[in-house]
Design a protein around this nucleic acid. Structure first.
Lengths: 339, 339
DNA sequence: ACCTTATGCATAACCGCTTTTGCAAGTCAA
DNA sequence: TTGACTTGCAAAAGCGGTTATGCATAAGGT
């Protein structure tokens, strides 16, 4: 009948009061280092685990951060890229644990309800959508928030994202350098800031390079969506000679559409994608991608969030994470020609 | 300065005591229907939301469950199937929240350390590996554990999994029914129970149907792994006429290998996979898959875990979740021939 | 009419932890 | 010596609920 070890048990074992234990563990109060260390040791030995609920109730912090992944109601939002999210979340979790925090998942479905039920000190919202109910709720609660990708309807606040403006330019420059002159963009409608940014970057680049803007709107963010959008583009009398898809899964759909339409990639069509992944790497031909360094995004976002939670001084505004262009056959073509 | 509405405010507004409010809302105590309804209405109007932490404090539990996703050190374990895990975790999270628990992520790396820092009442370990350090640690702490997929080195304990034995039979019967006679299995080496189960089921089926066992071992669980394993199989002088891959990503690799080797699917090779996903659905040709109903697995596992945490009576042992065969072109072939 | 039992609700004691306050003992300057 | 600070720790008051207990009053049995 192993009973939970609470602060009381620790206090008894250490021969001090519960107040002292609380202070020793939290680092607050006035205690000599000696007592502090002794209490900590006893707590450790007894395997003391604080009760999160009790902490929260007493007005303290719980050491819990909510991780909310936004969703779009009317769009089949199947999480565009698995590897991206997995990397981001993995790194975020690790970074949080390093500083003594745990990440609790708030499902996108009942996000608001979930956030109410999770006694979190702060929240990380991944790819928020405009008028995000969970964000409004968190704001009301006064809970610190950091988003990855900025809020479209409110660019203020703290967010971490890639430098998409620079990233788009890099990809388009690359496509142009390998000979593309009619570069199309395949993207879903703009439900998240990075899509807006990429589209804006694309428009700007086209204007600067005197190129026609060709945009194919994908109905969803899966391979199907990419297939549909690019099939339409390819059947045009004056089809593009390059396609940049804003998600790797869309790009894989583009490759499928090209194969179906007997268009040679990269001979007649160069294809590139935003977001690197194993799937992009193993596609036929392997896809040139813009790596987004999700690990770094996750790490920075969590660092920022914890600073906010702990009331540490942070410089206001956002953080930009660089992108990495990964050149593969889908735009380079030499290995394909070698065949 | 809108203040929180607690049970106290509701009590004042309804002209009753906090006890009555608590009883009215929880359905306990002795109250006439009239009072109950009135209090509920007032609570509703005031937008009362119970404080989860306070509620938990009364009970013994802390309201935190750890979600550990095991990993294999020396295998590139990129999470075989995204959709599967996403569905499972989403449903598990929702089920947990419904019962007032939050799910905290314990990263596979540093799992033990992470679990130590997360003051959880119980843990859900997804696809544990043999000699899992995190499980040993949790056992030592006396924390209730439920795994999805059983522990290879210890089948006892509580676990939830698909009825793989039945599932394999269903797929192989299907492949046999559509004419396959040399059915190969593509699988990574056995790091998890479901792979062991599928391989055992496959071996049993082959023995029962007097078929030769042909197994291609994938070096990892990505498209690359499937490509490598099936390329080897297809270059055999007497190649298989069907391949069953234990993960959808492997199967997509199989499709790529078939295309590279100019083998027609499903004409010359039927391909099926375990685990359904959008990627499988949009593959060319669309893949016949065995759906694993991850939602149900997640829900049952969490239900079981919370019962254990709360000391509710549970029947010992495991829970089996049925599979669903989803037939698509990769084994049916008619649409392909129609081309 | 009187005692018992059921009914309707309030009082108060927790739950585990944080935090404010209080108090004794030690330190120090005047 | 003495008042003014520190220092080291404990007592006690919440936090927002749940639940055991108590106590009127009403209903039912004899």
């Amino acid at each position: 009948m192993r009973q939970r070890i609470g602060i009381k048990e620790v206090a008894a074992a250490a021969g001090v009061s519960t107040t002292t234990v609380s202070h020793a563990l939290s680092g607050k109060g006035r205690l000599p280092e000696g007592t502090r260390a002794r209490v900590r040791e006893v707590a450790e030995q007894l395997g003391y685990r604080p009760n999160v609920s009790a902490r929260k109730l007493g007005g303290g912090s719980t050491g819990l951060l909510a991780l909310a992944v936004s969703q779009v109601e009317d769009l089949t939002f199947q999480l565009g890229d698995f590897d991206y999210f997995a990397s981001l979340i993995r790194e975020a979790t690790t970074a949080a644990l390093d500083r003594g925090y745990a990440l609790a998942i708030a499902p996108a479905a009942a996000a608001e309800d979930a956030l109410h039920k999770i006694p979190a000190d702060g929240a990380l919202v991944v790819d928020p959508v405009p008028d995000d109910a969970s964000i409004a709720y968190l704001r009301g609660q006064g809970v610190p928030i950091v988003t990855t990708g900025r809020l479209l309807d409110d660019g203020d606040g703290y967010w971490v994202d890639n430098d998409h403006a620079a990233g788009v330019g890099r990809v388009l420059d690359h496509l142009h350098a390998v000979g593309a002159r009619r570069i199309a963009l395949v993207a879903p409608r703009s439900f998240a800031s990075y899509i807006v940014d990429v589209r804006a970057g694309y428009a700007g680049w086209c204007a600067a390079h005197d190129c026609e803007e060709i945009v194919g709107i994908a109905p969803d963010v899966t391979e199907q969506g990419g297939f549909a959008a690019s099939s339409a583009l390819l059947s045009d009398p004056d089809p593009p000679d390059a396609i940049y898809a804003v998600l790797d899964r869309l790009a894989i759909g583009v490759l499928l559409a090209a194969a179906a339409a007997d268009v040679d990639v990269p001979g007649d069509l160069r294809v590139a994608a935003c977001t690197d992944s194993v799937a992009a790497q193993t596609a036929r031909p392997p896809l040139t991608t813009l790596g987004l360094n999700p690990e770094q995004i996750g790490r920075e976002a969590i660092g920022l969030l914890i600073d906010l939670v702990e009331g540490l001084p942070v410089s206001p505004g956002h953080r930009l994470v660089p992108t990495t262009l990964i050149e593969r056959e889908s735009t380079l073509g030499s290995p394909a020609r070698a065949r």
